[in-house]
Amino acid sequence: MPGLEDLYREIILDHYRSPRNRGELPTPPAVHAQGHNPLCGDEITVYLQIDGDTITDVKVGGQGCSISQSSASMMSQAVKGKKVDDVKAVVRKFKSMMSIDDEDPTPIPEVKLGDLEALQGVVKFPVRIKCAVLAWNTLTEALAEAQ
């Protein structure tokens, strides 16, 4: 069995202890989506303020385990101020790192994940993959809300 240090990297614990972009945004003008993991009860709400083709603000609410909450926090940092199309590319790249196939036949975009790569160790703990992708699936739903 892989060691817990592969899962609980320091940067992950830092985001868990001090989550970034916590809170809510008024809807409208922002959009939001709720996601939950029925197995463990984790809940996440993602608020997006989208102006033109750019996500100008993001807030995250909800509660859950260290992996789901740190992933949500890191996600919020990764998307804030980014163009929607670039964010969609990051989502695809992140989910591919989590060994989740999407149905899109086009190649996985070559984008840098930066700090998010700390979550790579989650793949060694398959039960926790759902925790790590919860925020990202909820982000995708919020983006769909905006369209």
Partner: peptide, 24 residues
């Protein structure tokens, strides 16, 4: 978080349930 507690316990092969136990 209980999910993390369970993960740490699993490292010692201690098997406990973590979740809402179908009693939300």
């Amino acid at each position: 978080h209980p999910h993390d507690v369970s993960q740490v316990l699993d490292q010692k092969n201690v098997c406990v349930r973590a979740g809402h136990h179908c009693a939300k």
